[in-house]
Design a protein around this nucleic acid. Sequence first.
DNA 1: TCCTTATTGATAATGATTATCATAATCATG
DNA 2: CATGATTATGATAATCATTATCAATAAGGA
Lengths: 147, 147
Amino acid sequence: MHREERAVLERYLKERGLKMTAARETVLEAFLGLETHVTVDDILEAARALDPGIGQATVFRTMKLFADAGLAREACRDDGGRQYEHAWRHAHHDHLTCVDCGKVVEFVDPAIEKAQEAVYRRYGFTSSGHRLELFGRCPDCSKKRSR
Amino acid sequence: MHREERAVLERYLKERGLKMTAARETVLEAFLGLETHVTVDDILEAARALDPGIGQATVFRTMKLFADAGLAREACRDDGGRQYEHAWRHAHHDHLTCVDCGKVVEFVDPAIEKAQEAVYRRYGFTSSGHRLELFGRCPDCSKKRSR
DNA sequence: TCCTTATTGATAATGATTATCATAATCATG
DNA sequence: CATGATTATGATAATCATTATCAATAAGGA
Ligand SMILES: [Mn+2]
Ligand SMILES: [Mn+2]
Ligand SMILES: [Zn+2]
Ligand SMILES: [Zn+2]
């Protein structure tokens, strides 16, 4: 399963003299089997379902590695622990979060992206990514609130 | 000094039965005397210069209070501790950060703000603030790099 | 001034992440 | 496929930022 991501990881490891291990395979399968934004402990739980011997430190280390390899990406950094999401074949997007119920909408807005490029140009910066999080109340929570 | 901010704080405290204390005055003066983005320990240091008896826990508590009172606002949330910036009479702005030297440019871009409003409307959300951080390389660091 | 209530500072506790280290696994090489 | 240099692992301790606890103190309305 997940042939392609596995190949990405193997290439990444080989290029820098690192090793493919059982733990890394397990964490990869666990991570890819989860959707949305997951915390290290979510991944640890899923990984231990496949192999109870996996250590927490290994998951921390491995997810950092996956992020560097382009397989994972850090999502919103709220209080309460880093969140990861899939990065391989998952295009960049931003997040719209409900401050009441926590619901998260992922979106891409070309107008925003364009305007950001203009800001980079205005200040002579070279772009290397951005983080945009919109906070607000979702339709349901807005409704509840106005009653 | 800082009559106006002090008045804001006093009104805020009175409205909810809280008390104006020496420690709160000291932290306020310390915070307002600093510029840019400051960490709790920066503020603690400045506060202890005015009164060595100030406790760290008090600064954590007080800054949270100031944020609620509209005197402070949380700035970028990098690794390594919350950052605060002045909020009273300091309009909203976003940040453009150099990933090499750490330089921070504050900017406001009407096109981005407008486009964000459109996203809120598209998903039926009510807006309650956003956080945008652009990462990149500043002109100096870009130059160094290309050599 | 008195009294209720909020506040403080020291310290312990927590939660997330990283460092350490002895042991085990990987893999290029012979 | 055995060897050996090197990397990885998992348990555990250590950090770091933040919050909770609590006895002692200060504020401010009556
Ligand atoms: Mn996402
Ligand atoms: Mn700022
Ligand atoms: Zn909601
Ligand atoms: Zn720079």
